[in-house]
């Protein structure tokens, strides 16, 4: 069984800065996994042509089971409000997604509130850090019919605020530990190296492969 995690950057290409739907479809086919956790996912956003990117990715991956879980409604980095569990609004959304070729018995979301303070972030191409407000996060888990029985696959994209992301991770892992095992968490944790160990007792890393930046990965 093949599991994957990818931060979509809302489908934008670094080569020309464009969001082209066929490239998202190509990415899904290249990854060719049974279950894929998606981060930085748009639904109904102008910048990505109003697409439901989780649905589009699932269609290209041949995944009949999928879910988009909004972290916020509105425009990320501009005007937005935190999404609530059970909401499915006809407004632009931004968050995470999970797609599965295997049947899903149950979906679970875990809300992870934003840090209450701004934090300095070094934006690629700039020399000085920019003080950014955090945005709400969440975890999305699917209890999947695996080849040897049920397993839980989850995804998340944690805060860039040091310490706060560990707090979110602890909360998420606690919630996930009550779901059918084995449990695999796929995602963009924004936690360097083995720092996760502070809160991930009983959990183990599955892979140590650099994925960022895409051109020449270092982390």
């Amino acid at each position: 069984m093949r599991l994957a995690s990818v931060n979509l950057l809302h489908g934008r290409s670094l080569s020309d800065g464009q969001v082209v739907p066929s490239r998202l479809a190509d990415a899904a086919r290249l990854i060719d996994a049974d279950v894929v956790g998606l981060q930085e996912v748009d639904r109904g956003q102008d910048r990505s042509g109003g697409a439901d990117q989780t649905a589009a990715f699932a269609a290209s991956a041949g995944a009949a089971h999928w879910r988009f879980a909004p972290a916020l409604w509105g425009t990320p980095g501009a005007s937005w409000r935190a999404a609530l569990d059970g909401e499915d609004l006809a407004e632009p959304g931004y968050g995470i997604g999970l797609v599965s070729r295997r049947p899903v018995q149950r979906w679970v979301t875990v809300r992870l509130p934003a840090a209450p303070v701004r934090s300095p972030v070094l934006i690629p191409g700039t020399r000085r850090p920019v003080w950014l407000a955090d945005e709400p996060r969440l975890g999305l888990a699917a209890v999947v019919d695996g080849p040897h029985g049920p397993l839980t696959v989850a995804t998340t994209h944690l805060s860039f605020v040091p310490g706060w992301n560990l707090r979110q991770l602890r909360r998420l892992l606690r919630a996930l530990s009550s779901l059918p095992q084995p449990v695999v968490l796929l995602g963009d944790l924004n936690v360097p190296g083995a720092t996760h160990r502070v809160v991930s007792h009983g959990w183990r890393p599955l892979a140590r492969v650099a994925t960022y930046p895409s051109v020449r990965p270092r982390v």
């Binding site: 093949r2 599991l3 979509l8 290409s13 670094l14 190509d26 990415a27 095992q181 968490l185 990965p217």
Partner: peptide, 30 residues
């Protein structure tokens, strides 16, 4: 990626795609 419980990894790779500033992290489990 983090795991709780019995998961046997048979392969890992980072796949560059036409989108994003991240590669996709892929894990094969047995």
């Amino acid at each position: 990626m983090l795991a709780l419980g019995e998961v046997r990894v048979t392969g890992t790779e980072a796949i560059a795609t036409p989108i994003s500033d991240h590669r996709a992290l892929v894990v094969d489990i047995g």
